[in-house]
Amino acid sequence: MAQEIERKFLIRDASWRDEPASTETFRQFYLARRDGFSVRIRIIDEARAFLTMKTGNGLQRGEYEYELPLADARELERAHIGTVIEKRRHCIAHGRHVIEVDVFAGALAPLVVAEIELESAEDVVELPRWFGREITDDPAFSNVGLATNGLPEEFRT
């Protein structure tokens, strides 16, 4: 089984922008969701598309991902549930890890979240000073939660 092991954090301040980063633009939407299972399509830079199924919740989850023809992804968007997520991902090297900072746009702005993928659940990482509160186990901040429920209350104006 394919595994994704990652921790997620809110961002404390904008000092992460001082770090060198590569960027990608994502448009993603969900086709199905139930407790502990989701199916999404992600379009990257309007050039490539992936179908992803995730199982479980929290730190360690099953993840199955397959490249999809871009035209199929665009056609399937009509069947999405919830909000289509638009975000810009900034990938920042951090020791032997990569931190992915997602800056959300549209209905999910001004949310900014950092993710760091781990090799194991016991992997120890020195966190940058700009990391804020950990939200790994908060379903309100999962992408599927954001797509189906919108911004968590603390970000609503």
Results as ranks from 00 to 15, higher is better:
Phe26Thr: 01
Asp18Gly: 00
Thr25Ser: 13
Lys8Met: 12
Arg61Asp: 11
Gly36Asn: 07
Gly132Leu: 05
Gly56Phe: 11
Arg33Glu: 14
Glu19Thr: 00
Thr55Ile: 02
Ile99Thr: 07
Pro69Val: 00
Asp18His: 12
Thr25Pro: 00
Ile43Val: 15
Thr52Gly: 04
Gly150Cys: 08
Cys91Lys: 14
Ser15His: 10
His97Ile: 06
Pro128Arg: 11
Arg129Met: 07
Tyr30Lys: 04
Arg7Phe: 07
Val113Ile: 15
Arg42Cys: 01
Leu59Ser: 07
Arg34Pro: 01
Leu31Ile: 01
Asn143Lys: 09
Ile116Arg: 04
Phe131Arg: 09
Ala107Ser: 13
Asp137Thr: 08
Gln60Pro: 00
Gly95Trp: 03
Arg96Val: 09
Ile44Ala: 11
Asn149Arg: 15
Glu6Ser: 12
Leu70Lys: 02
Ser38Ala: 12
Ile44Leu: 09
Val98Thr: 15
Ala109Pro: 00
Thr23Phe: 05
Lys54Phe: 06
Ala109Tyr: 03
Lys8Arg: 15
Glu46Asn: 14
Ala14Tyr: 06
Met53Phe: 11
Gly132Asp: 06
Arg74Pro: 01
Ala49Pro: 05
Arg96Pro: 14
Glu122Cys: 08
Ala140Asp: 13
Phe50Cys: 03
Arg12Cys: 00
Val144Met: 06
Arg12Trp: 05
Ile44Glu: 11
Asp123His: 11
Arg48Cys: 10
Gln60Arg: 14
Gly145Ile: 02
Arg78Asn: 13
Arg7Asp: 05
Phe131Cys: 12
Ser15Met: 08
Thr55Leu: 13
Leu31Phe: 02
Ala107Glu: 15
Val113Pro: 03
Leu118Asp: 00
Leu76Tyr: 04
Lys8Val: 10
Leu10Val: 00
Glu117Arg: 09
Asn149Met: 13
Glu67Gly: 10
Asp72Leu: 09
Arg17Glu: 14
Phe26Ser: 02
Ser15Asp: 11
Thr148Asn: 11
Trp130Ser: 09
Ala105Met: 09
Asp137Ser: 13
Ala49His: 00
Ser38Cys: 13
Glu134Gly: 03
Glu86Gly: 06
Trp16His: 11
Gly56Ala: 09
Arg96Cys: 07
Pro69Asp: 07
Arg27Asn: 00
Gln28Asp: 15
Glu122Trp: 04
Arg129Phe: 10
Ala32Gly: 10
Lys8Ser: 11
Glu24Ser: 13
Thr52Asp: 05
